[in-house]
């Protein structure tokens, strides 16, 4: 069963002659542990898709089914709880709380969920170690580099053991080297820890880490390709310039 499935997902902004269809009847399913990149020119609806799946925005029509339940039929409190427990968010602008240190930022979703502070912190430090930041647990966000901040954000997204990570241009604000690190970390998240990842990006190099790429244009999915297949890739490589 897919971890998330959208059916005829449509989002229209504005009304009448000003109406803009940001998302037009999108059907998409993401399986557990799958790493999916969503690509397309800006304004193609990829961020809208992510917001709808994350329950941050409500669809005009269609459904988002997460864990077999349609979030359109959930109360706001339920959606909030769902976000807290089943979905992890990673944003372009790291979005860490500036007055909390790295460990506290990571622990935040747990604390919000009512986990005891000490326990939450221990779990947070575990996850910081997994993203390679165990030594920086006590630093405030402004004492961390962009890449490190994004690692903290990823640790925070993972700390509640979510089934799905939603990442909106997670490398959009990083230099290419850090971008690569973050992309590899996300790959590891899907491979090693089995989380499904839905990532919006405009960078082919980052998208190439995914198992599958969904191309969008004008609010529609125009192509949906599986790119992880070792043999085909090798064959292709022979054709493309390396021979």
């Amino acid at each position: 069963m897919p971890i998330v499935e959208t059916k005829g997902l449509t989002r229209v902004y504005g009304e009448g002659s000003n109406a803009v269809t940001a998302l037009d009847a999108v059907d998409l399913a993401v399986e557990p542990g799958e790493f999916v990149a969503v690509m397309g020119p800006s304004g193609c609806g990829k961020s809208t898709l992510l917001n709808l799946i994350g329950g941050l925005d409500a669809p005009t029509s269609g459904s988002v089914v997460i864990d077999g339940r349609d979030i359109a039929h959930m109360s706001e409190a339920e959606v909030t709880a769902l976000r807290r427990r089943r979905i992890g968010f990673v944003f372009q602008f790291f979005n860490l709380i500036p007055v909390l240190d790295a460990a506290e930022n990571v622990a935040l979703p747990l604390v919000l969920d009512g986990v005891k502070a000490a326990e939450a912190k221990a779990t947070a430090i575990e996850w910081l170690a997994r993203v390679g930041l165990q030594d920086l647990a006590g630093r405030k966000p402004d004492e961390l580099s962009g890449g490190q901040q994004q690692r903290v954000a990823i640790a925070r997204a993972l700390v509640t053991d979510p089934a799905l990570i939603l990442a909106d241009e997670p490398t959009g604000n990083l230099d290419s080297r850090s971008s690569d690190d973050i992309a590899r970390l996300l790959k590891e998240v899907s491979v090693t820890w089995g989380r499904a990842i839905l990532m919006v990006t405009h960078d082919p190099r980052i998208a190439a880490h995914a198992d599958r790429i969904v191309f969008m244009r004008d609010g529609r999915v125009v192509d949906d390709t599986r790119i992880a297949g070792a043999q085909e890739a090798r064959d292709a490589m022979e054709k493309v310039g390396l021979l």
Binding site: G54, T80, N95, P109, L112
Partner: peptide
């Protein structure tokens, strides 16, 4: 931004 982010990661109103 902080508030929106907090809400996104599961803080209630």
């Amino acid at each position: 931004h902080d508030i929106g982010m907090l809400r996104a990661i599961g803080a209630s109103r």
